[in-house]
Amino acid sequence: MGNLQIPTNTLDLFIRSVEISSYLPGRVRLHSKKLIGNPGLEQQVQQQLGAFREIERVETNTVTGSILIYYVPEILRTNRDLRKVEEYIMTHARRR
């Protein structure tokens, strides 16, 4: 199988459904067209990402579709699944 990356959980599916706008260790900005004008989805995103104790804060904006995630890299990386997501984000972030 090698380097084939198949989504293995809800987090994988979520991260592949959004555009990764920017990445800095400790701060990730995602963009989702589905979030625009969708307060129900905003609440879901807040609840699901907010459930991770390794994530400090999540800011969402239903006008722009922005999802801003703040975390302490050393703490986040203690969670194997979140570490894999961060690695995916690092390699797929849009370069400016």
Rank of each mutant, 00 (worst) to 15 (best):
V85T: 09
Y70V: 09
L13I: 12
E74F: 10
L11A: 04
T91S: 12
L30D: 03
L35R: 04
V28W: 05
P39Q: 04
Y88N: 08
I89D: 04
V72W: 03
S22P: 03
V18H: 06
T64E: 09
E19T: 15
L49N: 01
S22R: 03
L49G: 06
N9K: 07
E54R: 03
Q47S: 11
I6P: 01
M1Q: 07
R96G: 09
F52N: 11
V45R: 02
D12H: 02
T10Y: 13
R53H: 13
Y88Q: 08
V18W: 03
I20M: 09
V63H: 12
D81V: 13
S22F: 04
S22Q: 03
V72E: 12
A93E: 08
S21K: 06
N38G: 02
T64P: 04
E59M: 07
R53N: 13
Q43L: 11
R27V: 06
N3A: 08
R96P: 05
V72K: 11
Y71A: 02
Q48R: 14
T78Y: 15
E86L: 00
V58E: 00
I75R: 03
I75M: 06
A51P: 01
N38P: 09
Y88M: 13
Y71P: 00
N61I: 05
I36Q: 15
N9P: 02
R77C: 06
R16E: 14
T78D: 10
R57A: 09
D12P: 08
R80T: 14
L49W: 06
Q47M: 12
S21H: 08
L68M: 04
S66L: 05
V85M: 13
S66E: 11
P7N: 05
S66D: 11
E74Q: 14
L49K: 02
R83V: 05
R27T: 08
L35A: 01
P25D: 10
N79L: 07
F14R: 09
N3D: 08
S17C: 12
R27C: 05
E87V: 09
G40A: 06
S21A: 15
Q47A: 11
V58M: 05
M1H: 10
T8I: 10
G50C: 01
S66C: 02
S17Y: 14
L76K: 00
H92L: 11
P39E: 01
V63I: 15
E59G: 02
R27P: 06
V45I: 15
K33N: 14
E19A: 13
G2H: 00
V85L: 14
L76R: 00
L11M: 10
T91R: 13
P39L: 12
N9C: 05
F52M: 07
Y71K: 02
Q43N: 15
G37D: 06
T60W: 13
T60Q: 15
S32W: 02
D12R: 01
L11F: 10
T91P: 00
N61M: 08
D12T: 13
R29G: 00
K33I: 14
P39I: 07
T62I: 15
R16A: 09
I55F: 00
E86A: 00
K34V: 04
V58G: 00
E74I: 13
L49V: 09
V85W: 12
L30P: 01
L4C: 06
G40V: 04
T62K: 13
I15C: 09
T10I: 15
S22D: 02
P39M: 12
Y23Q: 05
R53W: 11
Y71R: 00
V85Y: 07
Q46E: 14
K84Y: 10
I6M: 06
